[in-house]
Amino acid sequence: MAAISCTLLVDDDETTNYLNQTLLRRMAVTDAVLVATNGQEALDLLHTHCVPVATPSCPALILLDMKMPRMNGAEFLQAYAQRPPGENPAVVIIMLTTSLNPLDVARMQDLPIAGYLTKPLTREKVNRILHEHFAR
């Protein structure tokens, strides 16, 4: 069994999702990977896979892009926080971004996330997430 039962990738770039999915599978760190291309799709997946929240298909890790159409990362977090507490899993949310703009970094400090990483996702960054948040 992998360290993470299920991971949710939320990014509007299909190539990024493919590469991240491939990396996570090659590293064998997650049993399942769900993919959403915007925040609304991610909320829909949580509704489908987290009832009840203790199911193995409910994500324990969400890798969330900041800038997406329809519903961006910050809007997703706001909507996630408004869901009934019994519907939200205990999840580690990591913001993935291409931006090192000081204003974007400052905005991320105010979001309810466990941390942020710059893209691309690498083996070292995944290992850091595992070490810091999943005791592995």
Rank of each mutant, 00 (worst) to 15 (best):
L24T: 01
L43E: 00
E132H: 14
L103H: 12
V33T: 05
L111V: 01
A81Q: 10
Q78D: 10
N72T: 01
A36T: 05
M68Y: 08
G73R: 09
M66F: 09
V51W: 08
L34M: 03
G39I: 00
P89K: 00
A79R: 09
P59E: 11
R107G: 07
E41N: 02
N17R: 12
M27A: 07
A114R: 08
E14M: 03
V91K: 09
M27G: 10
D110I: 02
L130P: 12
T22F: 09
T30D: 11
A114P: 14
C6Y: 05
A54K: 06
P52H: 05
V33S: 01
R136C: 11
Y18S: 04
M108D: 02
R25T: 03
A81S: 06
A54E: 15
M1W: 10
F134T: 10
A74N: 07
A135Q: 08
K67P: 00
L111H: 08
G73S: 05
R107E: 14
T22R: 15
V10M: 06
V105D: 09
S5F: 03
T15F: 09
C58P: 10
P52Q: 12
N88E: 07
A28P: 03
E124W: 03
I113K: 12
R25S: 04
T16I: 13
P102H: 12
C58M: 04
V33P: 00
P112I: 00
V91T: 07
L130K: 08
T118G: 01
L77E: 03
T30S: 10
N101M: 02
H49T: 03
T15A: 07
L34A: 05
A106M: 13
V10L: 08
M66P: 03
T48L: 12
A74C: 02
M68F: 04
R83P: 14
Q78I: 00
V10A: 03
Q82V: 12
T98Q: 09
D13E: 06
I4V: 14
L130N: 06
S5A: 15
D13C: 14
N101I: 00
L43T: 00
A114F: 11
P120S: 07
T15V: 12
A2G: 12
A74M: 14
L23E: 08
D12Q: 08
R136G: 15
L24P: 08
L61N: 01
L19T: 05
V33C: 01
T7K: 08
A42M: 04
C6G: 09
V10P: 06
K67T: 01
L8D: 00
Y116Q: 08
T122F: 13
P69T: 00
D104W: 04
